[in-house]
């Protein structure tokens, strides 16, 4: 584990040396030899790991918009998601949609009352075959080994090809500096700058320190988060005992967000 992480770090350093002139760093590492060991990087001891992270949303446990608000609020608060009044510039990671919108290809005129009016949590699906990752010209959006589709805000050039590619409308763009529109800044998490795309990150920063995503934490059991690769995980248990649907299955993107309706 340690050996491989060191190797990837050096590989990375070497790769960035191509463009960023990281040679002094490598030299320093080399010359610091002797009794001292070389610096290295690793995952935190408490970091949660999985083959493929997934979210199961039990919509039967929700009645109204009110039940979903705490999840949206905590998500947007800890990630410094701004609240812009202008709808064109809106930024959202987690929000609600009616059935006829979120499952637009599966709706009909005779839905039962509960489903018809129920708000559904909507977010990035962290697809198995993400179209956004395919489209990005700089690898600013990429899929991690654990299935999470992430944004590297440092690298995004703001071409918005990923927004056109995403078949779920999960991505937002910073049409202006977001900072004036963040009521209370979470100092532990960065904000974004104008001109970059953003979206749900499955709380990657929390997983790294052993915490489950914030929305799951405050969901009172309505949301389950776990590893699809682990047959004993909570999500696998829910999937094997309930009928679940995913958004736009015909597209083959393979969302990692499942809905129990």
């Amino acid at each position: 584990m340690e050996e491989s992480s060191r190797r990837t770090f050096l590989k990375l350093a070497g790769f960035s040396a191509l463009g960023l002139g990281a040679k002094p760093v490598l030299d320093a590492f080399a010359s610091s030899g002797g009794v001292q060991s070389k610096p290295m990087v690793m995952k935190g001891e408490k970091a949660l790991q999985a083959k493929r992270w997934a979210l199961v949303i039990d919509t039967r446990k929700f009645k109204s918009e009110k039940d979903l608000e705490p999840m949206i609020e905590v998500c947007h608060k800890i990630h410094n998601v701004p609240k812009l009044e202008n709808k064109r510039h809106e930024i959202k990671w987690l929000w609600t949609e009616e059935f006829k919108h979120i499952f637009s290809s599966q709706t009909h005129d005779f839905l039962d009352e509960r489903v018809k009016d129920l708000p559904f949590l909507t977010l990035c699906n962290h697809c198995e075959k993400p179209a956004c990752v395919r489209a990005c010209p700089t690898k600013a959006t990429f899929k991690r080994a654990d299935g999470i589709v992430l944004m590297d805000f440092h690298r995004c050039i703001g071409c918005r090809f990923c927004m056109a590619a995403c078949p779920y409308g999960s991505r937002s763009f910073n049409f202006r500096d977001p900072r004036p529109f963040i009521k209370e800044t979470n100092l532990k998490f960065p904000t974004r700058m104008k001109g970059v795309v953003e979206k749900c990150n499955f709380c990657a920063e929390r997983l790294a320190v052993g915490k489950i995503p914030a929305c799951v934490e405050v969901s009172k059991g309505a949301l389950a988060f776990g590893d699809l690769g682990d047959s004993k995980s909570k999500v696998r248990e829910l999937l094997s005992s309930n009928f679940t649907i995913r958004r736009k299955p015909a597209l083959g993107a393979g969302p990692s967000v499942f809905y129990i309706v």
């Binding site: 990375l12 960035s16 995952k43």
Partner: peptide, 28 residues
């Protein structure tokens, strides 16, 4: 003094892209 920018560049690459968030320095 000389290399903090390169160090920070690598930190951000490893944290954001490789999910490794802990740095072990030369003295462990």
């Amino acid at each position: 003094t000389a290399n903090h920018m390169q160090l920070l560049n690598e930190w951000r690459e490893t944290v954001v892209r490789n999910a490794q968030r802990v740095y072990v320095n030369s003295s462990g």
